[in-house]
Design a protein around this nucleic acid. Structure first.
Length: 317
DNA sequence: TAAACGTGGCA
DNA sequence: TTGCCACGTTT
């Protein structure tokens, strides 16, 4: 869709110039937008386990799980994980292997390693608590701009915008009406948050983005922002502003036959048992490529997911 | 089945 | 600063 040919013709320079023209709605327009978002959220908010807690550690865990992983897949693992590692101290005290085992089903297993390291930093440098500080949060392993602000907003009610892929799409289409870079996008989100209502506002923006302002065929009919949407007001002229915006989805390289596939199979196997070097190829699904299997194993070790144990067995770290 | 989903490392 | 790439699983 965004491969329409004209997308390639838009150089980065042009996008930057466009960003300078972002007009933040002011006065009553802004108030009306906030009300539309908050009002819709009150009536339509989904009941999700992590929305019932403001425990900063639980919020952090849920947000890390929600990186690159959809809600439906996080539901089960989240409950299990919180039960097992209810505090940063409990997580830090566990072995990485235990955290990786608890991570089962979520994928992107490095996140489990990062979360374990983050728990360690929280214990060692922040008194076992999650700091209420953007710089400190972003410096934690596996915590980036999105997760840091999600924690500030959802656990501490700090007035900050939280830009995930859904919100990035919504902002570029409905509010700006043109593509946004990461910086403009964040500033715009920040400017929209009603004082003291960051939790409700950001949760509602997530839901509107996820349920109406979707990537492929946006459900504008019934969207609470329909009447204030710039892109809709202009008659949805192509290209879709979201397509060229920062933080929105891009096509991925093929998964089948990739290193990721083999890594995934190897970690899945390692959750059950240690693996001899001679069995690596079979366990990773590449019976004919022992060298590649060995390479992937070494990368798992480098990433802190696995280690070479006694007797030349590869095991969870 | 193609689509969904942030962070970190690097250029 | 920005963009590109690697990183897994489910439906």
């Amino acid at each position: 869709m965004e491969e329409g040919g004209s997308a390639d013709a838009a150089p980065a320079v042009q996008r930057r110039r466009l960003e300078l023209t972002v007009e933040v709605p002011t006065g009553s327009g802004l108030g009306a937008l906030r009300q539309a978002v908050l009002g819709w959220g009150e009536a339509n908010r989904r009941d999700l386990p992590w929305r019932a807690t403001r425990d900063p550690w639980h919020v952090l865990v849920s947000e890390v799980m929600l990186q690159q992983t959809q809600v439906s897949r996080v539901l089960g693992p989240y409950r299990r994980f919180i039960e097992r590692f209810s505090t940063p101290a409990a997580c830090a005290a566990a072995r990485v292997a235990d955290v990786v085992v608890a991570w089962e089903g979520l994928g992107y297993n490095r996140r489990a390693v990062y979360l374990h390291r983050t728990a360690g930093v929280l214990v060692e440098r922040h008194g076992g608590r999650v700091p209420v500080d953007l710089t400190a949060l972003v410096s934690l392993p596996g915590v980036g701009a999105y997760t840091a602000r999600a924690v500030l907003s959802f656990a501490f009610e700090v007035d900050t915008g939280v830009v995930d892929t859904n919100v990035a799409r919504l902002l570029s289409r409905a509010v700006a009406g043109h593509p946004l870079g990461a910086v403009s996008s964040q500033k715009l989100a920040d400017s929209l948050v009603p004082a003291g209502r960051a939790w409700a506002f950001n949760q509602s923006l997530f839901d509107i983005g996820a349920r109406h302002c979707v990537a492929r065929h946006p459900d504008c009919h019934g969207c609470p922002l329909r009447r204030r949407c710039r892109w809709a007001a202009a008659g949805w002229p192509p290209p879709d502003p979201a397509a060229a915006s920062a933080g929105t989805a891009r096509p991925q390289s093929r998964f089948a036959g990739s290193d990721r596939e083999g890594r995934g199979r190897l970690v899945t196997a390692l959750r059950r048992r240690s693996i001899a070097a001679t069995e690596l190829a079979r366990a990773s699904g590449w019976a004919g490529e022992p060298e590649r299997a060995r390479q992937i194993a070494d990368e798992l070790v480098r990433d802190g997911l696995a280690r070479w144990g006694s007797a030349g067995l590869l095991e969870l770290a």
